[in-house]
């Protein structure tokens, strides 16, 4: 009987393993350099190298309370190694973190950086984190959840 139970459990394990989906691990989604894109007249952002296109209106509304506030301005996007998109730009007070979904970018977190708005922010990939710079001496190390390290001279 014991032998039968052992055989059955072995077979069940094999069957379960064969039914589970294939998973590739340790995938690096990171972009080596941020993308600087100009918002089009239709409030769309088109990133050329990785073919990413989306509407910036909800962010403009959130950040500036005006859905067309970012028309013609530049926004900076960087994808970290985990696959989250970090988005910010000049005059932004926050860095927005999104995760990709089915035809959507879903907000993961909004990281407050400045009360007055940044002047000329830049995003650098520093795996597994993201570095945010804004002028001389302003540096933040970010994860998808928030600020990890602060440096202000």
């Amino acid at each position: 009987m014991n032998k039968f139970v052992a055989m059955l459990s072995f077979l069940c394990t094999v069957m379960l393993l064969s039914c589970s989906s294939l998973t590739l691990e340790n995938v690096d989604y990171g972009w080596p350099v941020e993308s600087v894109s100009t918002v089009g007249p239709d409030n769309m952002v088109s990133e050329g190298r990785y073919s990413l296109t989306f509407s910036i209106s909800p962010i403009a509304l959130e950040e500036f309370q005006d859905s067309s506030a970012l028309r013609g301005s530049k926004v900076r996007i960087l994808r970290n190694t985990e696959g989250y998109y970090f988005l910010t730009g000049p005059r932004f007070k926050h860095v927005y973190v999104f995760k990709p979904g089915k035809q959507e970018l879903k907000e993961v977190s909004t990281i407050e950086i400045s009360q007055t708005g940044m002047q000329n922010p830049a995003l650098n990939l520093r795996p597994p984190l993201v570095e945010l710079l804004d002028g001389e001496g302003f540096r933040r190390i970010l994860s998808s959840d928030g600020i990890v390290e602060e440096e202000k001279k």
């Binding site: 350099v33 941020e34 900076r76 830049a122 650098n124 990939l125």
Partner: peptide, 10 residues
């Protein structure tokens, strides 16, 4: 080097 934007370097 830590204060340089990668984008600016490129």
């Amino acid at each position: 080097p830590a204060q340089q934007s990668d984008y600016d370097i490129q």
